[in-house]
Protein backbone atom coordinates (compact mmCIF):
# COMPACT_ATOMS: atom_id res chain seq x y z
CA UNK A 1 0.00 0.00 0.00
CA UNK A 2 1.40 3.40 -0.95
CA UNK A 3 0.34 7.00 -0.48
CA UNK A 4 -0.02 9.34 -3.42
CA UNK A 5 -1.14 12.93 -3.86
CA UNK A 6 -2.81 14.71 -6.74
CA UNK A 7 -3.01 18.45 -7.26
CA UNK A 8 -6.28 19.26 -9.05
CA UNK A 9 -6.40 22.87 -7.92
CA UNK A 10 -7.58 25.58 -10.28
CA UNK A 11 -9.38 23.16 -12.53
CA UNK A 12 -13.12 23.07 -12.79
CA UNK A 13 -15.37 20.03 -12.69
CA UNK A 14 -15.31 17.63 -14.31
CA UNK A 15 -11.53 18.04 -14.71
CA UNK A 16 -10.74 17.14 -11.07
CA UNK A 17 -12.78 13.95 -11.53
CA UNK A 18 -11.00 13.13 -14.78
CA UNK A 19 -7.59 13.74 -13.18
CA UNK A 20 -8.56 11.57 -10.20
CA UNK A 21 -9.80 8.81 -12.49
CA UNK A 22 -6.65 8.83 -14.59
CA UNK A 23 -4.43 8.74 -11.51
CA UNK A 24 -6.44 5.99 -9.80
CA UNK A 25 -6.18 3.90 -12.95
CA UNK A 26 -2.41 3.81 -12.45
CA UNK A 27 -2.60 2.71 -8.80
CA UNK A 28 -3.00 -0.62 -7.03
CA UNK A 29 -5.90 -1.73 -4.85
CA UNK A 30 -5.39 -0.46 -1.30
CA UNK A 31 -3.31 2.55 -2.32
CA UNK A 32 -4.33 5.88 -0.83
CA UNK A 33 -4.70 8.96 -3.03
CA UNK A 34 -5.14 12.43 -1.56
CA UNK A 35 -6.64 14.89 -4.04
CA UNK A 36 -6.61 18.64 -3.48
CA UNK A 37 -9.13 20.73 -5.43
CA UNK A 38 -10.44 24.27 -5.46
CA UNK A 39 -13.76 23.61 -7.23
CA UNK A 40 -16.26 22.84 -4.45
CA UNK A 41 -18.20 20.74 -6.97
CA UNK A 42 -15.47 18.12 -6.52
CA UNK A 43 -16.92 17.38 -3.08
CA UNK A 44 -19.93 15.86 -4.81
CA UNK A 45 -18.40 14.60 -8.01
CA UNK A 46 -15.33 12.75 -6.76
CA UNK A 47 -17.23 10.76 -4.09
CA UNK A 48 -19.93 9.96 -6.70
CA UNK A 49 -17.24 8.77 -9.10
CA UNK A 50 -15.73 6.63 -6.30
CA UNK A 51 -19.06 5.04 -5.39
CA UNK A 52 -19.73 4.14 -9.01
CA UNK A 53 -16.31 2.74 -9.69
CA UNK A 54 -15.77 0.82 -6.46
CA UNK A 55 -13.33 3.05 -4.58
CA UNK A 56 -13.69 4.27 -1.04
CA UNK A 57 -13.64 7.86 0.16
CA UNK A 58 -11.76 7.71 3.46
CA UNK A 59 -12.10 11.37 4.35
CA UNK A 60 -13.11 14.73 2.95
CA UNK A 61 -12.32 18.10 4.43
CA UNK A 62 -12.25 21.76 3.48
CA UNK A 63 -9.32 24.06 4.20
CA UNK A 64 -10.17 27.61 3.31
CA UNK A 65 -10.85 27.52 -0.41
CA UNK A 66 -9.39 24.04 -0.82
CA UNK A 67 -11.20 20.75 -0.77
CA UNK A 68 -9.21 17.66 0.18
CA UNK A 69 -10.44 14.16 -0.56
CA UNK A 70 -8.68 10.96 0.50
CA UNK A 71 -9.47 7.87 -1.52
CA UNK A 72 -8.63 4.22 -0.97
CA UNK A 73 -8.35 2.51 -4.32
CA UNK A 74 -10.66 -0.48 -4.68
CA UNK A 75 -9.96 -3.67 -6.57
CA UNK A 76 -12.86 -3.38 -9.01
Amino acid sequence: MSEYTLDARNSLCPMPVIKTQNKVNELEAGDILTVTCTDPGALNDIPAWCRINGHEVVETCEHGSEVIIRIRVGDA
Partner: peptide, 20 residues
Amino acid sequence: KRNNALWSAEQLGIKLHILD
Protein backbone atom coordinates in the same frame (compact mmCIF):
# COMPACT_ATOMS: atom_id res chain seq x y z
CA LYS B 1 -24.31 20.48 -7.69
CA ARG B 2 -24.21 17.18 -9.34
CA ASN B 3 -22.66 15.86 -12.45
CA ASN B 4 -25.58 14.32 -14.31
CA ALA B 5 -23.50 11.71 -16.11
CA LEU B 6 -22.18 10.45 -12.78
CA TRP B 7 -25.70 10.60 -11.38
CA SER B 8 -27.04 8.54 -14.31
CA ALA B 9 -24.34 5.92 -13.85
CA GLU B 10 -25.13 5.69 -10.17
CA GLN B 11 -28.83 5.20 -10.90
CA LEU B 12 -27.93 2.44 -13.30
CA GLY B 13 -25.30 0.87 -11.05
CA ILE B 14 -22.72 0.94 -13.84
CA LYS B 15 -19.17 2.20 -14.10
CA LEU B 16 -18.58 5.50 -15.83
CA HIS B 17 -15.40 6.52 -17.60
CA ILE B 18 -15.05 10.21 -18.32
CA LEU B 19 -12.83 10.89 -21.30
CA ASP B 20 -11.03 14.17 -21.73
